[in-house]
């Protein structure tokens, strides 16, 4: 269950990047997760709910953008998206491939509510 540690890290990164004042709720947190990152979206969602309960992130939507595994072939130059995780070029079968995407694990953006009117300009 390393999703708990990942959810904790996500919440900490969000807290560090949103303005301390005014204290408004976080509405949405967007993350990018590669297929090779070893993260189970349902578990991440569950852990995110648990670690954000009672904080500014409580109730925020967690948008998980799943990134496929893409390979760039050094032999034929083609870039391919692969479903079966075998590291060979589907076009020419060369194993001289470079992983282009699939290992991402990033917080990309966060959406926060506006300050209640009248309190802040």
């Amino acid at each position: 269950m390393h999703e708990l540690s990942i959810a904790t890290n996500i919440a900490e990164i969000v807290e560090r990047h949103i303005p301390a004042e005014p204290v408004v709720p976080v509405l949405r947190v967007a993350v990018r997760v590669g297929r090779l990152a070893g993260v189970v979206p349902d578990s991440l969602e569950f852990c995110f709910r648990a670690v954000t309960a009672g904080t500014r992130l409580d109730g925020a939507a967690l948008d998980i953008e799943s990134v496929p595994v893409t390979l760039m072939c050094g032999a034929c130059g083609r870039t391919s998206v692969i479903d079966d995780i075998a590291f060979a070029c589907p076009a020419c079968a060369s194993t001289g491939v470079v992983l282009q995407t699939g290992t991402e694990l990033q917080v990309t953006e966060v959406e926060i509510a506006d300050a209640p009117s009248g309190e802040h300009a």
């Binding site: 990942i6 890290n9 996500i10 900490e12 990164i13 969000v14 990047h17 949103i18 509405l27 993350v31 694990l105 990033q106 917080v107 990309t108 953006e109 966060v110 959406e111 926060i112 509510a113 506006d114």
Partner: peptide, 15 residues
């Protein structure tokens, strides 16, 4: 509502 772009690795502290 405002959107803040972050683009940080989740495990940056560990790294």
């Amino acid at each position: 509502m405002s959107v803040i772009t972050i683009e940080r690795k989740v495990l940056e502290k560990n790294d």
